[in-house]
Amino acid sequence: MTEMTDQPIPTAPPRSQWRDIWEQFKSHKGALLGGIVFLLIVVSVFLGPLLWPYDATFIDIRSRNQGPSWVHPLGTDQLGRDMLARMMAGGQTSVSVGITAMLLALVLGSLIGVLAGYFRKLDNILMRTTDLFLALPLLPLLLVMVLLFREPLNAAFGPETGIFILIVTAIGITSWMPTARIVRGDVLALKEREFVLAARSIGTTNFRMITRHILPNVMSPIMVSATLGIANAIITESALSFLGLGFPPDFPTWGRLLFDAVDYMQQHPQRVLWPGLAISLTVLSVNYLGDGLRDALDPRIRGR
């Protein structure tokens, strides 16, 4: 019997799929760096205000328009508000808008994509709707939507929550289309696979089939569109704020800070720089993260 145990047994445990993905992701230097930078930005923006003594809306008119100093590392604005505190408050809004709008677009896009790919009857009408949405001029429509619904929502939810809901919804319902198309394509291919047939043969219901077998297999394109969706949403929100049609002035976002700083760019050019750099760095890191995820989640590239 002892000979049996002398047989070579596999020493390394079987490698899980997520481990493979992590290995591939780690080897992509840009993606790793992008992920770390994005995490750092999120953490500092949300935890920073707890440590920083100044409030974003605290007005100290005596120390207005200061340059960088030890007390105010990024200087102060025309009302003497600390720029670092404002940047962190603005970042909270920008990042939350980005993530919430992305989640909304993702849920909508995945739902429509799965329904269109799985149920043949719905396919035609849902995809025609997607095409129609893709043919809409998005930025002009966003501007119009913000203009139209700002007042009623402000009245219903208060100025801050109202505009937040408005912008998140507006961005969400204008950016789900690429996700829906990608997910539909993947679902169409998955539906013909043997494991789906096997699951169907043991009587799996449609709902269980989608949640148990289809959705886990389309997670990777959904995750990639999630990262790209954050970048897109942050840029759109900043663009709206930059055009003066976003958040109100006492409720800073990075785009709004940039918009306000443009008026003072001759005297205080550094004030333009901080919010612009923050937006660019966030979007850049998220884009790198998305690139790395796409490579890591693509089994054809993985292992090469």
């Binding site: 900043s238 940039l258 937006i279 979007v283 884009n287």
Partner: peptide, 23 residues
Amino acid sequence: SMVGFSVPTFFTGVLLIVIFSVN
């Protein structure tokens, strides 16, 4: 190209104005 693709035009525009028009 990743940077050019990520940096929004309203920032590059303002940056160029600060550098080439103001300074």
